[in-house]
Structures are given as C-alpha cells and as structure tokens.
C-alpha cells in the first residue's frame, strides 16, 4: 500500500475494538491512543524508549508506543492497559500489583503490567534471566523493584 497524501487511513484493532481513523503519518501510537482515542492509561515519560511507561502489546509483543508511528500499526492488534480488566474483575496482574503494593505513584504501572503480560503470554514460567530480559526496559522511580517482582511472580502461579 502506498499513498502520497499527507494523511493516512489507519485501520487496526485496539483492545479488540476495530479502529478506523485518519492520522498524520508522523503521529506516534502513544499520541494516537491518548489524545485521539482517550486511552490515557498508556503513559508517556521519556519519549525515547528508555523507561517503558508507554509499553503496549502489538500482535503479542511488547512495544514502546512512543517510538511507533501510526501507519506502522496498519492491520495490527493492539492491547493497552484499558483492555485488561473484565468489567469489575481485575486482571490477575492488576490484582497482584495491588496486593503486593507494587503501584505507589502508579505512573510506571500500566507499562510494567503490559510488559509483564507480554512476557508471561509468551513464556508463562520464565527463568530469572528471562524475567529480567522481559522486564529490564521498564523503569520504576518510586516503588523500587521488589514489590513489582513479587507481584509478577505471584501472578505466574495463577497464569492460565
């Protein structure tokens, strides 16, 4: 597909919902999700892939939504933090984050939960090395990592 026009017709799914929208080709997925769709659970922080706050899952893989241009999402399946809970019922990762005190200021939390989900979706029982490889791109500035590790490890036990 090629187009010379200045806008791009984006078709993708977000949390299972089909989306069709006209976007500027140099708009990032982060901006699109937050400021066009109002899905503000995905956070922007460093805007250079160093902190992981903006992590979403695209076709099963974790990506930094701040470094993805919208047209790259053509036909892709995007999952964000808003798609995790089932009505009032928290996703197991959300529940464990809450129980372990893994969310203090909470700003890194959506990105961490999405990174953890991508990791466990691919590998429900990661070794320590695989755990770090999956999670190391996400920075937490206020809670420290102990409670986050505990939350994800206890989610592993209930992973289906």
């Amino acid at each position: 597909m090629a187009t010379d026009s200045t806008t791009w017709q984006l078709r993708c799914t977000v949390n299972g919902r089909p989306i069709e929208a006209e976007v500027e080709p140099d708009e990032t997925l982060l901006f699109f999700l937050r400021d066009k769709l109002g899905l503000t659970g995905t956070k922007g922080s460093c805007l250079e892939g160093e902190c992981g706050s903006c992590t979403v899952i695209v076709d099963g893989r974790a990506l930094n939504s701040c470094l993805v241009l919208c047209p790259q999402m053509q036909g892709r399946r995007i999952e964000t933090i808003e798609g995790l809970a089932n009505g009032d019922k928290l996703h197991v990762l959300q529940d464990k984050f809450l129980a372990s005190g893994a969310a203090q200021c909470g700003y890194c939390t959506p990105g961490l939960i999405m990174a953890a989900k991508a990791l466990l979706d691919q590998n429900p029982n990661p070794t320590e090395q695989e755990f770090f490889e999956g999670m190391e791109g996400n920075i937490c500035r206020c809670t420290g990592y102990a409670a986050i590790c505990e939350a994800i490890r206890s989610a592993v036990q209930q992973w289906k």
């Binding site: 080709p25 140099d26 990032t28 805007l47 250079e48 892939g49 930094n64 701040c66 470094l67 993805v68 241009l69 047209p71 790259q72």
Partner: peptide, 20 residues
C-alpha cells in the same frame, strides 16, 4: 523506528517522509 522516532519526538524538524 527506535532511532528515528526518538529524533521526531525531540525536535519539531525531523524527517517527514518514511519508507516503512
């Protein structure tokens, strides 16, 4: 995009045309 979009995010004058 892990190099190029960093540049786009940092400054208002970055590349405008892309070959994905």
């Amino acid at each position: 995009g892990t190099d190029i979009v960093v540049v786009l995010n940092r400054q208002s004058t970055g590349p405008r045309h892309f070959l994905d």
